[in-house]
């Protein structure tokens, strides 16, 4: 009887200890995460105003990046841009851009680029297949990227992703009313992204 009880107890203890071990060992290993280095990363754009190029940047953006060059199809990322952080080298213009006719930053504080997967074109060349949401409008957007991996002085792995893509501002409602005039401000806007990222510290399981 006592022997029976001890046996049951032992089994219970075994199950209790082994269950979490089993749960912490999911069959597919998740794609490794990357943390953006905001100081060396850059998000810039080039618009055409009356035939002249206007260059600007967004100083605040964040990203949740999971990328493995060996598994581009399972890699994914979400980039969030704080629209109020726009700097087009003119305080007046920045203020106009925040207004309801342009970014409408008060109602739409964030633009989001969600990458569902990556396609590998050749060595270091990828296409991020995603959707960009600006204001309340979502459009499919494929972003060609060049991604290089290296190691910095402290032995930490560094990923450098660079890409450029052209979007049409009117597809996202950027420029309302009279500002739909593409002679004053051109419809295509070039977006340039440079992301420097480091491997995310291993998350506690």
């Amino acid at each position: 009887m006592i022997r029976q009880l001890v046996r049951i107890l032992l089994v219970l203890v075994f199950v209790a200890f082994s269950a979490p071990l089993q749960a912490a060992d999911p069959a597919p290993v998740s794609v490794p995460g990357w943390v953006i280095d905001p100081a060396s990363s850059q998000l810039a754009f080039v618009a055409i105003q009356q035939g002249a190029e206007i260059k600007g940047t967004f100083s605040r953006f964040s990203g949740d990046i999971h990328f493995d060059p060996a598994r581009p199809q399972e890699s994914h990322a979400t980039i969030r841009v704080d629209m109020a952080s726009v700097d087009s080298q003119s305080a007046e213009r920045d203020q106009s851009l925040q207004g309801p006719d342009w970014f409408g930053s008060e109602s739409f504080p964030e633009s989001i680029y969600r990458v569902a997967k990556f396609e590998k074109i050749n060595e270091n060349q990828y296409i991020a297949k995603g959707e960009l949401v600006i204001r309340d409008l979502k459009q499919a957007l494929d972003l060609p990227l060049t991604i290089h991996f290296s190691t910095d002085e402290s032995g930490r792995q560094v990923a450098k992703a660079e890409g450029e893509v052209s979007v049409n501002r009117l597809d996202y409602g950027v420029g309302q009313g009279a500002w739909q005039d593409t002679q004053a401000v051109g419809n295509p806007v070039k977006i340039r992204i440079l992301v420097i990222a480091h491997p995310a510290p291993a998350a506690p399981q």
């Binding site: 002249a52 190029e53 087009s88």
Partner: peptide, 13 residues
Amino acid sequence: AKGFPVSVFGWFT
């Protein structure tokens, strides 16, 4: 200085 470059009739900047 204002950050509005000059394009001459859209021909060149």
